[in-house]
Design a protein around this nucleic acid. Sequence first.
DNA 1: TATACTTAGTTTGTCTAGTAAACTAACTAA
DNA 2: TTAGTTAGTTTACTAGACAAACTAAGTATA
Lengths: 393, 393
Amino acid sequence: MKITGDQQLIKKMNKTIVLDTIRQKQPLSRADISAAIGLNKATVSSLVAELIDSRLVNEIGPGESSGGRKPTLLLFNKQAGFAIGVDIRVSDLLAVLVDLEGNVIREKSVPLADSEPGSMAEQIRKTVAQLSRRLPESPYGIVGIGIGVPGLVDETSRVVSAPNLGWDNVDLAGALAAELGDNIHIDNEANAGAIGEKLYGAGRDSLNLIYLSIGVGIGSGIIVGGELYRGTSNFSGEVGHMTVAEDGPLCRCGNRGCWETLASEKALVDRAASLWKEDAPSLEEILASAKQGDKDAVELLNEIGSQLGVGLANLVNILNPELIVIGNRLSLAGEVFEDAMLGTIKNRSLSYHRKKTHVAFAKLGIRSTALGAASMPITAFLTDPDVSVQETV
Amino acid sequence: MKITGDQQLIKKMNKTIVLDTIRQKQPLSRADISAAIGLNKATVSSLVAELIDSRLVNEIGPGESSGGRKPTLLLFNKQAGFAIGVDIRVSDLLAVLVDLEGNVIREKSVPLADSEPGSMAEQIRKTVAQLSRRLPESPYGIVGIGIGVPGLVDETSRVVSAPNLGWDNVDLAGALAAELGDNIHIDNEANAGAIGEKLYGAGRDSLNLIYLSIGVGIGSGIIVGGELYRGTSNFSGEVGHMTVAEDGPLCRCGNRGCWETLASEKALVDRAASLWKEDAPSLEEILASAKQGDKDAVELLNEIGSQLGVGLANLVNILNPELIVIGNRLSLAGEVFEDAMLGTIKNRSLSYHRKKTHVAFAKLGIRSTALGAASMPITAFLTDPDVSVQETV
DNA sequence: TATACTTAGTTTGTCTAGTAAACTAACTAA
DNA sequence: TTAGTTAGTTTACTAGACAAACTAAGTATA
C-alpha cells in the first residue's frame, strides 16, 4: 500500500497544476504562471520544459511587453491527442471525435435498428473506426474512448441494468477491449452529461452542480466539490424514482408517485395522448403546437414544468447546489415551461437555499453526454500522460 | 495564493498519516507503521520522534517478539488535550468534555429557561467554565470548543436562522470569542451529529453516510467520501422540507407535503393529540403506551415509520449511501417503528440501490451532536497541532 | 550453549525537487 | 545614453524521503 507522499508526488501535483493553469488562462508566460500559483520561477521553467518535451505545451513566440523584456507565451497543445465520446441512446447513437480541449472535430449520429449488446458493440467499433480515420498528425493519437449508457453502471464498468436497451449485466468494455484497447471508460449517461456540462458547458464555474437528464425518464449526475459523486455502488443520482406524490401514478419501478411519472418526456407524451385521444404525439409535435399558440399544449408543458419544479425544489433543499443544469430531450421545450418550473421551485424551496442556486439549460445541448464521455479518457490522460496507453485504431 | 506543494507539505501529510495510523491501530510499533503505510522505516522513526516530542504519542514499552527483537509499542496520547462539545437544543443544552479520542470525561445538561442569544452565550460560558475546572494535567489543555445549533449556519459560522430558538442572523462565535478565545467551531446540529456518528459511532466504517436528525423537524448531515458535504452556502441537508406528498398538509415553511409534516416527532405528537383528543402527549408517553401494547400507539408509530421510509427511500435513490443513521429524539422509538420503516424503504427504493445500503440507529444516542461538535476542534488540532491555539479558561 | 537467523530501530550517505539569489536577456522611459 | 523593469535561466543550498548498512535484542536449533 502506497498512500504516503514523496517528492515525485509533489512534482506530479505541481506539473498538473501548471498544465491546468496553462489550459485555463492561455496564452500566458512562465512568469504569469509563477505569479498565479506561487511556484518559484525556476520550478515553473523546469516543469514547463518537461511539458514542452512531452508535446503537451507549445511556445508561440513573444507577447506584449509591460515595461521590460517580452514574455514568451505558452499555449496548451490541444491537438497532442484526441478522444472519442459515445452517447448510447434508445434509438440512436451519437459519437464525437474531440481534441484535448473538447472541441468537436468530427461527429457521427447512427440510428440503431437493434440494441442487442453484440450488435451495439459492433456498431460502436465501426463508428469509432470511421471517426479515427485520417486523424491530424499528433504525438499521442486517440488517447481513449468514453461511453455513456442509459442505465446503471457499476464500479467495474459493467452495465448492471439498462431497461430501455433490454440489457442486464453486460460487459460492454470487455466486448470492445480486443479491438479498441483497454482504455475505455463507461459510465451512466447522466453522469457523463454532468461532467460534460461541468467541463465544457454551463457548469464551468460551479463546484457543486446537479445535471438533470430528462428524457423518457429522469436521471442525474451530481457533482460535489468539482468531482462526480458516485455513491457506494456508483449508482447515485437516480432522482427519477424519488417519491413526490405518495399516492401518485404507478411507475414501471413498482413504486407510486415517482417524479418521472409526473415530469419526464414520457409523462408529457402520455398525457398528451390521453388528452387528445391520439396515438402518442412526439415531444417535437407537442412543442410545435405550443409554439403556434395551442393552449392545451402550452398548459401541458406548464404542468410538466411545474412538476419538474417540485423535484428540483427537493434537490435544492437537500443538496444546496450552486447550479442545476437541465439537459437531454425535454430541455428542447425549456423556454416554454421555464417560468412554471422556476415558480414552483421558488414556492417549494427554502428561501435561504434558493438564493444562491441557479437553474440553467444544457449549453452543450444534445452533446452533453458524448462530450462528457470523451472527457473521461482525456482527464485520465492529462493526469498521467506517461501511463495512459497510446492507441492506434 | 499557495496551492502548490513542497516538501513541508509532504512531511505534514506523512506525519498526519502516521498519527492517524497510530490512532486507528494502536498499540503498534514503528515497524508496523512502516509496513502498514509503506513509508521507509527511517522516515517513520523520525516522524514518530517528532510526535513524541510534541507529546501526541507515548512509548509504552516492549511488545511480544515475533522471532526477533521486541518492538517498542506506541500509543496515541489521548490526554494530550481536551475539547468541549455543546449541543444546543430547544429547551436544554448538553455539553461534554472529551479527550482527544472522543471519550466523555465530564458531561453537563442544563435546562434553558430562555433561548435569547445573550443569555444563551452566558449559559454556554458558565457551562464551559464548569467543565474546564480542574482538568487532568495535559500539555495542550482545552484545544477548542464546538457547538451544534438547530438552525442554518453559514460558511462564516454565523447562525443565519434558527426558528426554534427565535434566532435570526446571530453571531454566537463572536459573542463567545472574548472569553473563550477564537477557536470556536459552530455548525448545524445535524451536521455535527453526522460527524459524531462517523467518527465515534455507527458510521466508523462508512465513507458515504447520511445522518438523520429527527426531532421536532427533520434535518440531516451528508457525508461524502468521508467528509461532510456542505453545499454552496453550507446549507445542505434540509431534507425535512423535501416534498413527498404534493398536496399533503401545510408546513410551517409555507410548502405542502413536506416530509417533516408526515414523519417527525411533531407529526407523531400532533396526530396522537388529534386522535386522543388530548393535550399533546409527549413522545415518551406515546412510546410507553406502545410498549404496553396500546394498539393505537403502535399503529401511530408504524405510520410514522412508514412515512419515514418514503423519504429515506428517496435519499437512497438519490445518494446511494452506504449507511443511513437515524438519530435525535425519534430514534428512541426506533425499535417500534423499525420494521414499518424498512418495509417502506424496500418497497420504494430501487433494488440495486438498497442492496448495499444499511440503516442503523445512532450509536451515540443523545450525544451524537455534542460529540460531533467536540470533534471539530479536535480534528483541526490534530491536523495542525502547532497552529491551533492553546487555551486556558 | 554457541551459532544462525529474525525482527526492530538507528545511522549514514544519496537523490530529488523546490527555493532564493544572482545572473543574462531584452525591453521601456526619459 | 542611462536607469529601471520584466522575463527567464543558472547556481548553490536545503528539506525530506530513501536504501543500505549498522546496532540491538530477541528466537530457534544443532
